[in-house]
Write a protein that binds this DNA or RNA. Structure first.
Ligand SMILES: [Zn+2]
Ligand SMILES: [Zn+2]
Ligand SMILES: [Zn+2]
Ligand SMILES: [Zn+2]
Lengths: 167, 167
DNA sequence: CATTACATGTTATAACATAACATAATTGTA
DNA sequence: TACAATTATGTTATGTTATAACATGTAATG
């Protein structure tokens, strides 16, 4: 087994997410953004974002609704979907298509074309940015189509879950 | 405006799908595959594949169910979903996540990692293979994850629809 | 022809998402 | 301030997509 002394953990997208920093930054970022754009960071919107950033894992709309209900907000479906749409428009939330779930954005630069890496066993999801991961998409041969949005989701198994599998 | 004399149409993935060839090939391919693998290409399975390859566009499960009903088959949801799952397992059908729809595979080699290019206006979908389009995915920096499946969907507008937009 | 595996049928329900309309809060302006 | 316009939230109903659980039928194997 090879040892990498330098940058040993930079490639371990699942294990080394510094969520404490992530969490604090995220709240500051959204506050600043909303002020700058003159948008209303209402209690409801803030709560939805907090719910998503708290565990920083994908949640279904109805899980979010439950949590909203417990926090005293209305918990009828449109409430969640509307706020999620709004937060998605502004890049603070993404939808993970493969899970029908929503996740707080962990990319301060708001690359609106994130790549998600999804463990099929623990359902942990890592958001990776194009530049950091060299997940490159280019299409020189497609000339009759203008790409506006990309959905890239990589499903598989994380090393933790793989090691736990006895077979 | 530049003129390209050579290979002018190879890049026009939307306009130049030779579906007549595609259709004939697809039926032969699935028949051969099922024989080789000793699988049952039952009337139901054949019908579902025919429905999908006929127009060669994505269809929702319930659209497929309608067509099955009209063809004399049962049209309760599990019928469609089971057959679709089976055909997907064997690479003859893919799910287009962005549309919650299913599409016949147009890649004879059964590359199980297709890329879909989806026009948001006409909802036409082109399946493109990695080699033909140079849509390349590589992740040298991800070391703690084993990719088993990829979902790559590019949404935007095709040239036909763009030209039709008056603005 | 019995056993087993595979395939299909059926009913009910779960999970995900939106339409349409009502009310309330915020913002801009006379 | 009063008013209008805009934005945000609440509510009810319904539409859409997908699966669980169990029953029946059909094909392959020895
Ligand atoms: Zn985080
Ligand atoms: Zn895992
Ligand atoms: Zn075709
Ligand atoms: Zn189009």
């Amino acid at each position: 087994m090879k040892k990498k002394k330098k940058n040993e953990n930079s490639s371990k997208i699942f294990k080394y997410h510094d969520h404490e920093a992530c969490f604090g930054d995220a709240i500051t970022l959204i506050e600043d953004y909303f002020i700058e754009k003159k948008l209303q960071l209402t209690p409801l919107r803030r709560k939805v974002f907090e719910i998503l950033i708290e565990d920083h894992k994908p949640l279904g709309a109805y899980e979010i609704l439950d949590k909203l209900g417990k926090a005293g907000f209305s918990s009828s479906p449109p409430i969640a979907y509307r706020v999620l749409d709004f937060l998605m428009e502004h890049g603070f939330v993404h939808k993970v298509q493969g899970l029908n779930a929503f996740i707080a954005c962990s990319n301060p630069e708001h690359s609106h074309f994130p790549t998600f890496v999804i463990c099929r066993k623990c359902e942990k999801v890592a958001e990776v940015s194009d530049d950091k991961t060299r997940l490159n998409l280019s299409s020189p041969e497609i000339t009759d189509f203008k790409i506006e949005k990309t959905t890239i989701e990589l499903t598989g198994i994380c090393s933790t879950c793989e090691n736990a599998e006895i077979r």
